[in-house]
């Protein structure tokens, strides 16, 4: 077990440094430094600027500045916004919960739909369920998320007038759970549809593979009901590849919800990213990017370890 953990960590460490170095370099390459911006208003020239740069540590060589930045990052200090001067860490912290609500709801819905649907499609290939499953994965892959958003707004907000098309709360502040749920339905639905396709496909093929095994025939031969065979034998064995799919799709799902947040004006990390990009506020942009990438890295690492603890086969395998 110790070796398994060591191996996982060994592959995660270079990726961790890779992420931070990449983001740091992008931040460094971005046009305009803090000194430029802070100096602008006061008409600071020559020596003032040099003082300011020394104070901000901008005269240090790049590797040193990287480690200073990394040290700050590990303590939750992501620098300050060029535009407002607020700490980027605080700005992101305010946006985490809305993002989690949106993405979480979308993913949970997607899993709740995709796993039964994929299993039903595998149980009876070429049935209605199977056609529904392949239709869903085609829509999920082929229709871009922003078009689903538009279609949703067009139909449910404008034509039917059932659902709000913007924001998280009606008057900008929390006024009951029902209001939040109403605002959540459209964006979470889009996140759900765009992430369900791959899940359905993987569940179906994982189940098909298990259904071909001899022990499934044994289970049916001894007279177990279809449903029991499916739930107790097929789905249980198919869960491992399905879990892997969910894991490897976290970045994809996050990326999708970034776009959805922007379109629906959902006050999460995605819309923060977009406003950062349009304002050329690079500390904010890079802060959101690095937080997302690190979140993905640590989730994967954590789930990998849990996986290794619960499934005895993983330990001795290639991992």
């Amino acid at each position: 077990m110790g070796q398994y953990i060591r191996r996982r960590l060994l592959t995660a460490v270079p990726v961790f440094f890779g992420i931070t170095i990449l983001v740091f370099l992008m931040l460094h390459l971005a046009p305009g430094t803090v000194a430029d911006l802070m100096g602008e208003g006061s008409g600071a020239a020559g020596s003032d600027r040099a003082t300011l740069e020394t104070a901000l540590g901008l005269d240090q060589p790049l590797p040193i500045r990287y480690f200073v930045w990394l040290g700050g990052l590990l303590q939750g200090d992501l620098g300050r916004s060029y535009l407002t001067g607020h700490g980027v860490g605080d700005m992101i912290a305010q946006r985490v919960v809305p993002s989690l609500i949106l993405t979480g709801t979308g993913v949970v819905l997607a899993v709740a739909i995709a796993i039964p649907l994929g299993a039903a499609a595998a149980w009876k290939p070429r049935s209605g369920w199977d056609r529904l499953a392949s239709g869903l994965s085609l829509v999920s892959f082929g229709v871009p998320g922003f078009f689903l958003c538009l279609a949703g707004i067009f139909w449910f907000s404008v034509v039917l007038g059932w659902l709000p098309a913007h924001g998280m709360y009606t008057n900008g502040r929390f006024s009951g759970l029902g209001d939040l749920v109403l605002h959540l339905i459209l964006p979470a639905g889009v996140v759900c549809i765009s992430s369900a396709g791959e899940l359905v496909k993987q569940t179906r093929s994982a189940c098909l593979e298990v259904i071909g095994e001899d022990y499934i025939m044994t289970a049916r031969a001894k007279g177990l009901k279809d449903r029991a065979v499916m739930v107790r034998h097929v789905l249980r064995s198919a869960m491992t590849p399905v879990l892997t799919t969910i894991l490897s799709h976290i970045p994809h799902i996050l990326g999708g919800s970034v776009v959805v947040e922007q379109i629906f004006g959902w006050p999460g990390m995605g819309s923060l990213l977009f406003s950062g990009i349009s304002d050329r506020d690079y500390p904010v942009v890079m802060g959101v990017t690095v937080v997302m990438a690190l979140a993905v890295l640590f989730t994967n690492l954590l789930l990998d370890l849990v996986y290794g603890l619960t499934d005895p086969r993983v330990r001795y395998g290639k991992g």
């Binding site: 990726v15 890779g18 970045p251 990326g255 970034v258 776009v259 959101v288």
Partner: peptide
């Protein structure tokens, strides 16, 4: 590891940046 690195970022986010 380089490919792990690229895949850790949500691609939309990295492309946008």
């Amino acid at each position: 590891r380089l490919s792990d690195l690229v895949q850790t970022f949500p691609s939309v986010v990295l492309v946008l940046c």
